[in-house]
């Protein structure tokens, strides 16, 4: 691996601290995001005695940080994570994913709002929950595995 300049460790990430915390924690929560690319940033920030550090420690748990920390045996791997380019592309990916998720949720909400519930629909729903349809129902959506709990008004 080519040695990277040491000053990359101190690379300034020009994103508001609040946004950065939110994005990093979201990145860590997402399954498909490459953890290693932001590991260095997270480790560094977790060590800080700042609000962001505390937030990250709370989200990740200290034991997890220590475990992740041991993956990196030398500075070079960590410094690679600090490049602005890497972080920007990850943030772009995150923004794209968020936009897609929001779009899908909006579409679903829109579809639901198009169709008002009628008395017949209510009756049909009761049938759908009935034991007679239990076997066939379970072959379909998880929504049908159990009746949803009554929501408090």
């Amino acid at each position: 691996m080519t040695a990277l300049p040491a000053n990359l460790i101190k690379c300034d990430i020009r994103i508001r601290q609040k946004d950065q915390t939110r994005m990093i924690t979201q990145l860590l929560m997402a399954d498909e995001i490459n953890f290693e690319a932001i590991e260095g940033v997270v480790l560094q920030k977790c060590r800080n005695k700042t609000k962001m550090g505390r937030t990250l420690r709370k989200h990740l748990g200290l034991s997890r940080i220590n475990r992740k920390k041991s993956i990196y045996k030398n500075k070079e791997e960590i410094t690679m994570s600090y490049t602005q380019k890497n972080l920007n592309s990850l943030l772009d990916e995150l923004n794209h994913r968020q936009a897609m998720q929001t779009k899908e949720i909006d579409e679903l909400k829109h579809l639901k709002s198009l169709f008002q519930e009628t008395e017949k629909a209510k009756a049909a729903k009761e049938v759908a929950w009935s034991d007679d349809l239990k076997d066939i129902r379970q072959k379909f959506s998880n929504y049908f595995c159990q009746k949803p709990e009554e929501q408090e008004v």
Partner: peptide, 9 residues
Amino acid sequence: LETLIKIAY
């Protein structure tokens, strides 16, 4: 399926 019901009925 609840949405399907609403659509169908």
